[in-house]
């Protein structure tokens, strides 16, 4: 990037110091050296000016109150040195697959078979007697598509921690119902919505949906409109083009009787 280019660049480039060049004459070696020195000096000055401008902008930005600045998105950080993670890693070794933290919440990834033992250890030794939440998540791109996430709370230290287990459609997860009774209905809900079974659960049945429901709704491949309802079983009430401009939803039900059978070919 030479300074001879016109100063119509985006602001991240060198600020406009329009260089005025002498008219072209036959360059001798000395003149060339002088020009190079001049160019180097100008580049250095430009870089310094740019640094000053950036610093000034950062200072203005820092002086603004936090809600007027751009949002600082949190990132995942390694939390292997956290004393709790260290204690768990020494006791269980390979069962703790990773320890990271996001926005201040420590998250431990635990191997599937040892979650009940890890949970018992958290409760007995580290005071995490309170299970705040147990939920599932579906990541269909992964081979082990389901996540079961446990949020724990300790009254003694006031700390919250998250445990995660990954599993696929067939492998059951050991239950933590003996550790915290609050897990009972939460695990039933995960089974209901995702199809993840929990080994050793006293009552592994559907909870929010009726017993004969077909499918597991919160999986990503289960359509929002449902598979046994609406347009799937009453196609004559739903127009082909029905639906809003964004294309989701099943349209709306028109107050007209179903189309006669002989008008539809082969229906």
């Amino acid at each position: 990037m030479s300074d001879r280019e016109p100063p119509s660049k985006p602001p991240s480039e060198a600020p406009a110091e329009t260089p005025t060049e002498p008219t072209a004459s036959v360059p001798s070696a000395e003149e060339e050296a002088a020009k190079k020195a001049e160019a180097a000096a100008k580049a250095k000055a430009a870089a310094e000016a740019k640094a000053v401008a950036v610093a000034k902008k950062a200072a203005i930005e820092a002086a603004k109150p936090p809600w007027e600045r751009d949002a600082v998105t949190p990132t995942w950080e390694e939390a292997g040195e956290d004393p709790l993670a260290v204690a768990m890693a020494t006791k269980f070794g390979e069962a703790i697959l990773s320890a990271r933290s996001y926005a201040g919440d420590l998250t431990l990834e635990v191997e599937l078979g040892s979650i009940a033992k890890v949970a018992a250890e958290f409760k007995a030794r580290h005071g995490f007697t309170f299970l705040v939440d147990l939920c599932g998540a579906d990541y269909p791109d992964r081979e082990k598509r389901f996540d079961v996430v446990y949020q724990l709370h300790s009254f003694t230290s006031g700390r919250r921690i998250r445990l995660r287990v990954t599993t696929d459609e067939e492998t059951p997860v050991p239950t933590v119902c003996e550790v915290w009774k609050a897990a009972n209905w939460c695990e039933r809900e995960v089974y209901d919505m995702y199809g993840v079974r929990f080994e050793g659960h006293p009552d592994m049945t559907r909870i929010l949906l009726w017993e004969g429901f077909n499918g597991h709704p919160l999986r990503k491949d289960f359509p929002v409109e449902g598979i046994d309802t609406g347009a799937a079983i009453y196609p004559e009430y739903y127009e082909d083009e029905a639906g809003p401009i964004t294309g989701t939803g099943t349209g709306w039900m028109q107050p007209k009787p179903p189309v006669e059978a002989d008008e539809e070919a082969g229906e």
């Binding site: 639906g243 809003p244 401009i245 964004t246 989701t248 939803g249 709306w252």
Partner: peptide, 15 residues
């Protein structure tokens, strides 16, 4: 501009 239809949480505005 159809912004209202885009913002509707249940997509019931048809434009």
């Amino acid at each position: 501009c159809t912004l209202c239809a885009r913002d509707c949480p249940i997509d019931i505005i048809y434009i």
